[in-house]
Design a protein around this nucleic acid. Sequence first.
DNA 1: CACTAACCGGACCGCACGGTCAACTTGCTA
DNA 2: TAGCAAGTTGACCGTGCGGTCCGGTTAGTG
Lengths: 199, 199
Amino acid sequence: MTDTRPLRADAARNRRLLLAAAADEFAARGLDASVADIARRAGVGKGTVFRHFATKDELIAAILIDRMAALSDLGEALREADDAGAALREFLTAAAMQRQERDLSFLAAASEAMPDVDRARGRMMTAIERLVERAREHGAVRADVTGADVFLLMCAPNYIAGYVPDASPDLWRRYLALILDGLRPEGASPLPEAAPELG
Amino acid sequence: MTDTRPLRADAARNRRLLLAAAADEFAARGLDASVADIARRAGVGKGTVFRHFATKDELIAAILIDRMAALSDLGEALREADDAGAALREFLTAAAMQRQERDLSFLAAASEAMPDVDRARGRMMTAIERLVERAREHGAVRADVTGADVFLLMCAPNYIAGYVPDASPDLWRRYLALILDGLRPEGASPLPEAAPELG
DNA sequence: CACTAACCGGACCGCACGGTCAACTTGCTA
DNA sequence: TAGCAAGTTGACCGTGCGGTCCGGTTAGTG
């Protein structure tokens, strides 16, 4: 944090390789993918992984923070969009497009112990809340749906499609469309149970 | 299979205790819950677990088969129901009510190697397909949704609600309602991507 | 009641994982 | 180009897991 000396060229390169390899490996095998496999995929020794990330959890956190930051950027940019409903759709499509990890429980667990994760999640949550609020005002989504709901629904398309062996890589679009249809206001039956409070 | 001699009284009791303890432990900690913990919760030695189930996977399979059989019974009973839409809703509610495991990937993996699992899954799939077909004919669900879709969506409410730390135990009802609203035919936009083929 | 096959339990094994470390290599700078 | 801090590496460690095994226990039977 306080120490911001730039990385040596090879170290910076390895860090990039590691993040990419880890994202691939996690997408393929889930969060249980071993650090050794990630190192091998990156063409690097296992020790190097722990030089860059003190812990496997920190590596996961770094990836999640990157992704949440990108989505936050998008969400904030979309605040100006003309069509609030289309903006929300675009956001959720982008969220599903970056292969999300299936196991979000890490997010909840890490938020308590890792302030960086918590901050990134908070920023994304407010971006989502703004989008939902605006879409609601424009009558593009049902009145009883909240930002927290959308946050939770964000990964569902990948989760659902992820359990089809040999699925089309775009199968998630089908379930995203289904969920989006569930969000539309026309003829919606009121939702039971209060919306959850997150973070 | 061929050998159907009845279990000794204590063995039968322990088997029941084990299945219950395993279901609890899996629900609480996911499929990674250790066999030792399950044995402890059942008040039994670890060796006893492996006397009843050759492998941890077989224990999981036994639980899954029980649940799928119960759902198949319900699904077949609901074929006679007057309101086809209500029947499908009732089925999905029952499916969510038994705490489903979050990690369905086991199902796909086990189906290939374990014929019992495959058979139970097949029976449940046809029950679901019948319910969906009938609901579709009655105009209670959109035309482009299939049995495979419903099968995949079945566990989503628990998955979504499962990542809220301290959630109300009935929070899944909220997301089930949302998904059911996504299934309704009025004003549905056609689904992209072909429905997956399962099994 | 005595006998035995079925059953139980927990010490034990091998393995794979996350994480450490000390010897070695390399990019930077003066 | 010499010197050194920064970076790399893979052998190594402790831990916790699924699964084994055998000595002791118990439910059923004649």
